[in-house]
Design a protein around this nucleic acid. Structure first.
Lengths: 225, 225
DNA sequence: GTCTATATTTAGATAGAC
DNA sequence: GTCTATCTAAATATAGAC
């Protein structure tokens, strides 16, 4: 392997630190990350954390965003194939099963926990979460176009609820794996019920539509179809 | 104030430490709790953490369970009044707005984050989460009895999904308050759509029912009505 | 049971050699 | 840019006086 100095090594070390931070977050949690655990995971010297990022917090913030950007870009094609609510939940499952992405949402959960009391992490986490929300919003806009739910639901709000739920389920999954499996199945069933609303005959659909309109006042703007 | 020695002071100090741990979790997060921050919040000496609980982890685990038990007991009556899905989401909102409960779920979120990499916290968190799930399960069993969703959905699984979502939304709320408000509204709208399924005329209801049955295979056992 | 040390480890951060 | 060495602060945990 070629040994080079100058800007090349700089970017490589930065990248190693970013990945080290992600690995440390996954294996040690937000309460266990430190300049030393990160440097160990990255295979570099501890002092480089401060040279390249100034502080541990800033490195963690940068790592959360960096890692999320990669993963979201990887998943974009998969999101675009989704044509139903159950398809969306299927992508959620895949995200957990897939090897490189394993623990991606878990890492976001850790950073999110840290962000509650750490303004430096807060901004980065908002941005990282926003990347997922944007994808989900696009899926929902497409999937719910013309559907009963799409008619009354605020799609941006629903996308945020979906993203938040997904993080919550990732966190609870470790604590109760069986419950997590059951929860995922229940969401599938929920999706099926919502989808079936749009598989009804024309007369029935109209009846549903009117009933929904009667019982809900649509609040807030947004891209809801 | 009477000063007493013996078992009385013991239980009082234990209680102060438990409450101090909860307060520290809320204000410092799982990454910021220590014997000293907890003792400071509790107004007692740092060494007492180890005398009474053996370690910081064990105190945090005990505190999470202790606090959740109290809050769930407080909310039980409120849960029993719930008669609809939107009523359930309303209780969720109240839980956040209410003063003493403010941050209760946030504390659970912190402990849950810690539990990902800490077996000692894992067991306690599972138990604490289970207390909420039990309540939600009872509400859902009652609310969904005879409804279209109740017919196909696994209620225990749905209860876990609801609990997980609620924790996730609490964590994301700090990072994006406006998004959280929109997400809550979207869940209300979702609840309204599901409820309206059961407000349809008899013929339409039958149509919905058949369509749901056709498109979903009910999986898993449980208390689903 | 509670408090005052205190031993030990680990953390964040920096200076200076290379 | 990277490494060694080091300072300082904070953490866990314990021993022993009260």
């Amino acid at each position: 392997m070629m040994i080079s100095y100058g800007p090349f090594m700089t970017t490589e070390t930065r990248t190693r630190l970013l990945q080290g931070a992600v690995d440390a977050l996954r294996s040690q949690g937000i309460a266990g990350v430190s300049a030393r655990t990160i440097a160990a995971a990255a295979g570099v010297n501890q002092a480089l954390v401060f040279y390249h990022f100034g502080s541990v917090d800033e490195l963690v913030a940068a790592a959360a965003l960096w890692s999320t950007e990669q993963r979201v870009a990887e998943c974009r094609g998969r999101f675009q194939q989704v044509r139903s609510l159950r398809g969306l939940s299927a992508v959620g499952r895949e995200l957990r099963a897939k090897d490189p992405a394993a623990g991606e949402v878990a890492v976001l959960g850790q950073v999110l926990a840290g962000a509650q009391t750490n303004p430096a992490l807060c901004a980065a986490t908002r941005e990282a979460l926003g990347l997922w929300v944007t994808e989900i919003e696009q899926v929902l806009t497409r999937v719910l176009a013309g559907s009963a739910l799409g008619e009354v639901a605020d799609v941006p709000g629903l996308a945020r609820a979906v993203a938040a739920s997904f993080v919550g389920m990732e966190l609870t999954a470790v604590v109760d794996p069986d419950g997590d499996e059951a929860a995922f199945r229940a969401l599938d069933q929920l999706g099926a019920v919502l989808e079936c609303l749009d598989d009804l005959g024309p007369a029935t659909r109209r009846d549903v539509r009117l009933t929904v309109r009667r019982s809900v006042r649509k609040k807030g703007g947004g891209a809801g179809a």
